[in-house]
Simulated assay, not measured.
Amino acid sequence: MRRVRDAQDRAAFAALFDHFAPRVKAFLIKSGAEPSVAEDCAQDVMVTVWRKAHLFDPTRASVATWIFTIARNRRIDLLRRDRRPEPEDLTWGPEPEPDQEDILELQQATDRLSAAMATLPEKQKALIEQAYFGDLSHREIADLTGIPLGTIKSRIRLALDRLRHAMG
């Protein structure tokens, strides 16, 4: 791995690939991936190992740990992508007018959300507003505010939990 990292040694990478690609594929299959998906994902993991070799730090993790962490993260990405719903077929023409009952329920829910938002600590409230009303990603909020990404995620998670409880 050090030869790959330091000198982009193709022969060293070939040896790494021969050793780890089948193991990554087996790991992905055991975690529930179809064999063809596991094969593609393992290839992608090994490409990432080549492209990101400069980031490998033997003081932080072993080669196997580093590669299998990449594989685990790639598997999580695939699961998230697979869980996304397909867009519904769009109907043509104007949408029907909502019922008065639906309008009242929506207004009441909006009022409850406003009241719940008002109870949040200011730091959490600001992050929720940026993430959900400002449509910013967690990374964009971190870059904008200078707050570490992990702190952003923790505060948003705590705020959402408080809102969930407040909304019933």
Rank of each mutant, 00 (worst) to 15 (best):
P87G: 02
E88N: 08
E88Y: 12
D89I: 06
D89A: 04
D89E: 05
D89Y: 10
D89P: 09
L90Q: 05
L90M: 01
L90G: 10
T91R: 05
W92A: 10
W92G: 03
W92F: 08
W92D: 15
W92L: 00
G93L: 01
G93S: 01
G93H: 00
G93P: 05
G93C: 02
G93Q: 02
P94Y: 04
P94C: 01
P94G: 07
P94R: 10
P94T: 02
P94L: 00
P94H: 12
P94F: 08
E95Q: 08
E95C: 04
E95S: 08
E95T: 06
E95K: 04
P96K: 01
P96M: 01
P96S: 04
E97C: 00
E97K: 00
E97S: 02
E97G: 01
P98Q: 06
P98D: 00
P98T: 01
P98I: 00
D99Q: 05
Q100M: 02
Q100F: 09
E101P: 11
E101M: 08
E101I: 08
E101A: 15
E101S: 14
E101K: 04
D102F: 06
D102Y: 10
I103C: 03
I103R: 13
I103M: 06
L104D: 10
L104C: 09
L104T: 15
E105S: 13
E105W: 12
E105Q: 15
E105G: 07
L106E: 12
L106K: 13
L106A: 14
Q107H: 10
Q107D: 13
Q107N: 09
Q107R: 15
Q107V: 08
Q107C: 06
Q107F: 08
Q107S: 11
Q108A: 01
A109W: 13
A109C: 08
A109L: 07
A109Y: 10
T110P: 04
T110E: 15
T110D: 15
T110L: 09
T110R: 15
T110I: 04
T110H: 14
D111C: 02
D111I: 06
D111Q: 14
D111N: 10
D111E: 14
D111K: 07
R112E: 05
L113K: 03
L113E: 07
L113D: 10
L113C: 07
L113G: 04
S114D: 12
S114G: 15
S114P: 04
S114L: 13
S114W: 13
S114N: 13
A116Q: 06
A116G: 02
M117L: 12
A118L: 01
A118W: 09
A118F: 07
T119N: 11
T119Q: 15
L120P: 06
L120F: 13
P121K: 07
P121Q: 02
P121D: 02
E122C: 07
E122Y: 13
E122A: 09
E122L: 02
E122N: 14
K123L: 07
K123P: 14
Q124H: 09
Q124N: 06
Q124Y: 14
Q124S: 12
Q124I: 03
Q124P: 08
K125M: 01
K125P: 05
K125G: 10
A126M: 05
L127F: 15
L127K: 13
L127V: 04
L127N: 14
E129Q: 14
E129T: 15
E129C: 05
E129H: 15
E129A: 08
Q130K: 04
Q130G: 12
Q130R: 07
